[in-house]
Design a protein around this nucleic acid. Sequence first.
DNA 1: CACGCATTGTACCGATCGGTACATAAAACG
DNA 2: CGTTTTATGTACCGATCGGTACAATGCGTG
Lengths: 188, 188
Amino acid sequence: MKTVYERADVVPLLAEIFRELGYEGTTLSRITERTGIGKGSLYHFFPGGKEEMAAAVLADVDAWFERAIYEPLRRDDPRAAIDAMWANVMDYFRSGSRICLVGAFALDETRQRFSPVIRDYFVRWIEALRQALVRAGYAEDDALAAAEEAVSGIQGALVLSRALDDKDMFRRTLDRLTGRLAATKRGG
Amino acid sequence: MKTVYERADVVPLLAEIFRELGYEGTTLSRITERTGIGKGSLYHFFPGGKEEMAAAVLADVDAWFERAIYEPLRRDDPRAAIDAMWANVMDYFRSGSRICLVGAFALDETRQRFSPVIRDYFVRWIEALRQALVRAGYAEDDALAAAEEAVSGIQGALVLSRALDDKDMFRRTLDRLTGRLAATKRGG
DNA sequence: CACGCATTGTACCGATCGGTACATAAAACG
DNA sequence: CGTTTTATGTACCGATCGGTACAATGCGTG
């Protein structure tokens, strides 16, 4: 028997595996074991092998953030877009039980393979948020610092809530970060 | 010819390799390649193999933080100990170019192997800082939140400064976190 | 110097790694 | 319905994985 997949369906499955196991920890046999997708299919969709799989996953993640978060921050009403960002972040990372693949790749040597993508993901996030904050009334200088603090704070919350195995810590930290953005907006 | 090592000298070398390559990325051949230490020595010092090596490294890291940071926070003048903590963190993580091994292990499946150690490292850090903040005049409730924010913020700064390959971002973020602790101390 | 023990280099093990080749089965298309 | 295209399972490859066995070398102690 043969199960037929499409590339677009495979990428999210790979994403979860890379998230859980990391780049080095993800092996072809583990992929087959968890998804049922054999080497034949994998190398058909991703002739470049494991590296191309990871690159496709990163591109997919990047595209999701671009559409769901960065674009609205640049385009929509800034306060609404920022509120939507917090809600999306909370959902996307499943209250801290799902990690940020880009952040995880940034930590070890995997970074060297994908450094432009990794950098770009965070640069664009910070910049989009900074623009929204400026449009919401922030001073130019404060906006950059606040945007960096928010994005950095999310990454820290992911590490810590996972280390402590405590979803509530993620929610608390995100609430605190949300409050900080709003407080600085008013107070300067 | 034979070079003779001691276990205590090997652990820090292993630590740097695990930091750079992660648990799965660290192979015995890479260890030999980077340190010159052969399998004979490694399995003599660490009969349990790679897992015991990583455990030894984690214990070493933990011991360093206990002695250099947690104990002073619990014992010494709180403001001086907190100042020393920021200085030590800045040095230890080499302005963000060196990652937190415990945080990195928390992100992927490696966490399952070492979850008690990982959890304990962060629990004790937060608790020691919380105690210091209380002794410095914080309200009980504020102290826990502020301690969590500081520790989480450090982890986030490590991820982000590494993703952006920007040591200055690490310094800026640590300065901001330092200011937050001091500001809340005064303002409540 | 001689003995004994801690330490080390090297050869080797089965298992698994990422990757390739290819015959075959399913879809797509006429 | 036959043909072409796309997708898939399987067998296989050399390299490397973590780990073991052991003889040889260094060092401390008498």
